[in-house]
Structures are given as C-alpha cells and as structure tokens.
C-alpha cells in the first residue's frame, strides 16, 4: 500500500521533470544564441574558469553536506541535521555571492543582458538557476526552523527529503551549465 508521503515524493519527481523541461528550453535557447554576440564580448573573452570552478565546487560540496543532513534526519538526530543543513545553506549563499559578483563584473565591463542576444541568453539561463537556488535557500531556512522546533514525523521527513531532492536537482542542472556555458565557452 502506498502512503501519502510516497505519493507526494512521486509527484515531486514529476514536478522536477517539468522544471527540467523548462531548463531544456533555456539551454536550447542559449545554444542557438551563444554565437550571436552582435560584435560584443564573446563567451571566451568574458568567462573566467576560476569563478565558474569555485561555484561548481561550492555546489558540489553543498550537495554532499545536504546528503549528510538527510542521513541525520533519517536517524532522527536533530543537532547533526541542523548542523549539516546550516553548512549547506551557507555554501548555497556563498555560491550566490560568487555568482552575483561575476554578474556585477560583467555589468561593469559593459556586458549586460542588453548588449547582445548571447548575453540575454546567458543571464537568463544562469539567472534562472540562481533564482531556483534562492528558492531552495528559503525552503532550507524554513526546514531548519521546522527541524529545530518540531519532532520528526513521517510527513516532515518526507518534506525535508523533497527539499534535498530539489537541492540535488539544482546541482545537476549546474553541472550542465558548467559544461555547456563555461566549458564549451572556454573551448570556442
């Protein structure tokens, strides 16, 4: 027999697939437009692999700590769970800070989203991922409060599990952004 939590997790997987399709559209758009620089800066001139690598490492480590947090939740151990999710949260914030710094460098160099179709597509794809990360961070904050104040129940564990799924999903999308946007941009 299916429990209500199983049904919710299944539905959340379906939602993640819809989100993935949304990202597919943005990726396809980026690939179509990435050479249309309209004599503005190109990907190779603009992107720094150092920043991109820092972001990647931050997110990958955050995925790892998120899993550790999840393990603690399954064992119903509050303090380690709080600790690991707090570390995950900080890593997420650090990722956003690096990303926004990168964006501000581009803007300062006159490479804003209005410069060319390539830059519109870049800011939209990476920005949408950043927006998702922000939503994930808000969710994590709420989860931290819930873990701190309430006992673990089957529905609450299921909810934290879905948050962790969301976080890993964003990590996965970032891996593709790193490859398609930064990696392929560097090779141009």
């Amino acid at each position: 027999m299916q429990t209500q939590s199983d049904v919710k997790v299944f539905g959340f997987w379906v939602y993640l697939m819809t989100d993935l399709i949304l990202f597919c559209v943005l990726f396809a758009t980026y690939i179509v437009l990435c050479n249309n620089t309209f004599s503005g800066p190109s990907a190779r001139q603009l992107f720094s692999m150092q920043e991109a690598l820092t972001e990647t490492l931050l997110l990958l480590v955050s995925s790892f700590t998120c899993s550790l947090g999840m393990l603690a939740v399954y064992r119903k151990r509050k303090v380690p769970a709080l600790l690991w999710f707090l570390i995950t949260f900080c890593l997420g914030v650090a990722f956003l800070v690096v990303e926004l710094t990168e964006f501000s460098h581009f803007l300062a160099a006159g490479a804003g989203w209005t410069r060319s179709a390539f830059l519109s597509a870049f800011f939209t794809l990476v920005g949408t991922h950043g927006l998702h990360i922000s939503v994930g961070l808000i969710w994590m904050l709420v989860a931290l409060v819930h873990i701190g104040l309430r006992p673990f129940t089957a529905p609450s564990i299921s909810r934290i599990f879905r948050m962790a799924l969301f976080w890993h999903f964003l990590d996965l999308v970032w891996v593709f952004i790193f490859t398609v946007v930064y990696g392929m941009g560097h090779l141009q």
Binding site: T29, V32, L33, N36, T37, F38, W113, T114, R115, S116, A117, F118, S120, A121, F123, T124
Partner: peptide, 14 residues
C-alpha cells in the same frame, strides 16, 4: 521588460 534580445530583429536575436 528587461530589453533583452531573444526574438527581436537586431542584436543577434532570432
């Protein structure tokens, strides 16, 4: 809204 150029005729839009 943000004056981007995905589908416009100029700026490399398509």
């Amino acid at each position: 809204f943000f004056d981007m150029h995905f589908f416009v005729t100029g700026f490399g839009g398509n």
